[in-house]
Design a protein around this nucleic acid. Sequence first.
DNA 1: CGTGAAATCACTTAACT
DNA 2: AGTTAAGTGATTTCACG
Lengths: 158, 158
Amino acid sequence: MEEIDRRIVTLLARDGRMSFTDLARETGLSVSAVHQRVRRLEKRGVLRGYAAIIDHDAIGLPLTAFVSIKPIDPAAPDDAPERLAHLAAIEACHSVAGEESYILKVRVASPVALEDLLQQIRAAANVSTRTTVVLSTPYEHRAPDVAPEPASAQDGSV
Amino acid sequence: MEEIDRRIVTLLARDGRMSFTDLARETGLSVSAVHQRVRRLEKRGVLRGYAAIIDHDAIGLPLTAFVSIKPIDPAAPDDAPERLAHLAAIEACHSVAGEESYILKVRVASPVALEDLLQQIRAAANVSTRTTVVLSTPYEHRAPDVAPEPASAQDGSV
DNA sequence: CGTGAAATCACTTAACT
DNA sequence: AGTTAAGTGATTTCACG
């Protein structure tokens, strides 16, 4: 991926609703050239989608936590992500190296809701849990520095 | 926050570039009524912004990790977030309950880049670090279920 | 891959319930 | 807060270099 695509990705990471007109101005290309590149980046999966950044306090989910999980039966097939996918409180699921097998990021309304969620997680995936409660979030969702890296496409499209 | 605002927030959390026209269709309101509500939600800070969701593999940052940090000198003032803010590899910084004081989410190009980043973190914030490397991410950035919660605004605006 | 132009559609404001 | 209407500006497609 070269210079202009990187610039487009950076700009959209910082403002997902930036217009093609503004992207064109910032990149020095014509509007339709930018349009073409954005569609290509979307199709290649470099731009995976767009999301509003929400204030979770304002929508009644003020409690964030990281939940590390470990299988009760280490011999059982590890399908925890699928078993947990129906729980809307789980925002993210990362498979990790170390003591535990996954780290979940969860958002709930209250301590009681967290307690309830943990029970659901343990029951659904047959795991033990270790929970780290977030007290405050100095920053989050910072856009990456898109550097001039290899970035070979996995899907063969170009 | 009532029904329609919650619906708007939900829709924009799932597709941050959804047009006002589509939002109007989905909510049963006129385009300008939706427009008005979105602007109000932005000003109240419920909608904090918009971002493209990026494939970090494609932009040369394929290594994600969680870095927990603990002050070397527990008596020193705790300004780790500001001291670390200049490091672009840090996507998020959460203050947490438990053994450590913060959990950072970081994105880097390689194991060596991670090693280098950890040294920078330790030096900049005078902390020890404990790192959990992400092996894969079954899911991330899932939009919340915006439920009918209190959601009292903190800024007094209505 | 790029451009410019044309048609369509979305955004934004205003005047008015 | 909502509506419709009207003007402006953005998106999208197309023909072409």
